[in-house]
């Protein structure tokens, strides 16, 4: 397996709060190959963004991290902050979940989009600017020469989102961590995003795609991971996953898509502080048995991983 790009082993993140310790990420283990699009879907508040932040080493200051993150064999979880800054943006780029917060309100959008290009590709200011204009035009932010000079508050939500995608894909990174890159973007423009992701991927870039858009994940990804209450509960190739999700939560999640009539999973979302004993899905699981009160093993079936007693 020489083509592994990112290897995440036993990563856990806990965050102390007044109410108790939030177990945001528990024992995450997976790897992403070069050129692979790896999607992470799952419950809102289950620690997907925190996992992305843990890889980028941009966690909240009070968060505790344990585990190992390796990028091309280099342990980035052990790098100093200074060395990490070089990795960020150049090797790993990120597209943040909330574009309003991620963009600096006082700097022109064009300048912000051009920044990673200038910093990491070593191209001149004019080159970066013309590339920025081309990227904005590609995302239908027109006329680019005018729009490039505007400030984030003058953009609509979806436009800012697209500008962020332009920024994230600009500097030829090797891994892009995209946190809900398609939210707020209409279907036609979503295809532009899909197309640029595919182009970047075919140039050799891998993706960690965090998304709630099941259709987009289905169209884009090679492998899918499902997150529930801080744990990755299933990892599978795309085709078999959508044909037959194994974990009861994956099944329930796919059953809740609007196409199937919007049926929410019964029961409340679990607390991230006092996580359910044993299998974290057991309070809501239709297949639960007594053994589900102890930690389920991670079972491997035909190259798929699933954390459930049913398959043990």
């Amino acid at each position: 397996m020489s083509d592994v790009l990112l290897k995440v082993s036993d990563v856990s993140v806990t965050i102390p709060t007044e109410q108790g310790t939030v177990h945001a990420v528990d024992d995450a283990t997976f790897s992403i190959n070069k050129r692979e699009v790896f999607s992470l879907i799952g419950e809102s508040g289950s620690g997907k963004s925190i996992l992305g932040q843990a890889i980028m080493r941009l966690l909240p200051p009070n968060a505790m991290f344990s585990g190992k993150v390796e990028l091309e064999g280099m342990e980035i979880s052990a790098l100093s902050e200074k060395e990490m800054q070089k990795v960020r943006g150049k090797t790993v780029a990120s597209i943040a979940q909330n574009p309003y917060l991620a963009m600096n309100p006082g700097i022109r959008v064009g300048t912000q989009v051009a920044e990673p290009m200038q910093a990491h590709l070593g191209i001149s200011k004019e080159d970066a600017k013309s590339r920025t204009c081309r990227a904005l035009k590609y995302f239908d932010i027109i006329p680019p020469e005018v729009r490039e000079r505007e400030y984030p508050f003058q953009y609509s939500g979806g436009m800012l989102q697209r500008a962020m995608v332009a920024m994230g894909t600009a500097a030829d990174p090797e891994l892009i961590i995209a946190d809900e890159p398609t939210k707020g973007v209409d279907v036609l423009k979503k295809r532009n995003i899909a197309a640029i992701f595919q182009k970047v991927a075919s140039d050799g870039c891998a993706f960690l795609l965090i998304t709630h858009d099941v259709g987009f994940a289905r169209a884009m990804s090679d492998r899918i991971a499902v997150n529930y209450c801080g744990q990755i509960i299933e990892i599978a190739e795309k085709e078999p996953f959508f044909k037959e999700p194994l974990h009861p939560y994956s099944q329930a999640l796919l059953g809740a898509v609007p196409e199937r009539g919007m049926h929410p999973i019964p029961g409340p979302s679990p607390s991230m502080i006092e996580v359910p004993e044993g299998c974290r899905f057991h309070p809501r699981c239709p297949h639960k048995t007594d053994r589900c009160l102890t930690n389920p093993p991670v079972v491997e079936i035909n190259g798929r991983f699933v954390r459930c007693w049913m398959y043990a």
Binding site: G52, P60, S94, N98, L101
Partner: peptide
């Protein structure tokens, strides 16, 4: 900065 930083994701 920390408040903003978290927005970075």
């Amino acid at each position: 900065k920390n408040i903003e930083l978290e927005g970075r994701f």
